[in-house]
Design a protein around this nucleic acid. Structure first.
Lengths: 145, 145
DNA sequence: TCAAATTACTTGACAAAGTCAAGTAATTTG
DNA sequence: CAAATTACTTGACTTTGTCAAGTAATTTGA
């Protein structure tokens, strides 16, 4: 058990700071038809090969029933389509419709815009350094897994 | 307007990763009597000199009415006490009671424990590097302010 | 100097987000 | 092939957060 209090305090301070950064960047959901959680689900559907509710729940922690309703809503809105898996008919394979792809792109572009604003003042060197630091932090924090 | 897509994608990827880290560390609220937002409010009360609802709202984005009710709840639970400011009787100065301090400490200790678990496998050098990287990221992202 | 505007907070009514548990149909296990 | 498990759905509910109107104290400016 670690007992390095200045270290822990620094980490917590950074976490508070970065929570705010993430909060700022999540503001693009405010002028979108999606909630933060819906956005995450849409992201998973977009980026998961042969996506299903089960796979989504493998990637983000979300209540089964809640997810079921979000998927239902997306279908009603014409953003995704669902077909029973031929291998296992309990599973439903989910994919974006054309409309869903367009909506996802909009969301994505708005997100990119906000990141540009927040990170745009950095020089090329600073940007390179930032990416290296982010990658390193990721390696450090994946040590336990 | 920045147009460096690999950069933006790396930032977003890190943000998704770190959102999960923060989510993990916020899990200590699950076995506490507080919600995440209540915990943040308690943190502000603990760390703000001459705290008032106004000052809390200066530090975290929260609806005025919602905050008013949280403060009310904390008073009913005996965690804080409120006295009208002598300088401006619209304001109420808020501070933790003894009980509030104890509850805050518990919350704080649980949080520290989770951070220890997540970061505890790092060597002394890695910990030092991590803090430097976190500080640098913070400087970079504060450039616009 | 005092009426109008503003500020700090409160309250009621409501909406959005998330949780829990029971239920259905398909699949796996022994 | 009966019992257990899995993937998902549905109903009922709680928690969390928002909006707007209201009150009392303070500030502003003609």
């Amino acid at each position: 058990m670690l007992n390095d209090h200045p270290f822990i305090e620094s980490v917590r301070s950074f976490n508070r700071f970065y929570t705010n950064i993430i909060g700022l960047l999540d503001q693009h959901f405010l002028d979108s038809p999606f909630s933060l959680t819906e956005g995450r689900v849409l992201y998973e559907i977009r980026h998961t090969e042969g996506c299903s509710a089960k796979k989504i729940r493998g990637n983000i922690a979300i209540d089964e029933g809640y997810l079921s309703r979000i998927i239902d809503k997306f279908i009603r809105q014409g953003l995704i389509k669902k077909k029973p898996s031929s291998a296992d008919r309990r599973l439903h394979i989910i994919e974006l419709t054309k409309k869903g792809q367009i909506e996802f792109s909009k969301l994505n572009n708005n997100s990119n815009k906000l990141i540009s604003q927040k990170f745009g003042k950095l020089s090329q060197n600073e940007r390179n350094d930032l990416i290296i630091m982010m990658k390193t932090i990721r390696v450090f924090l994946s040590k336990n897994d």
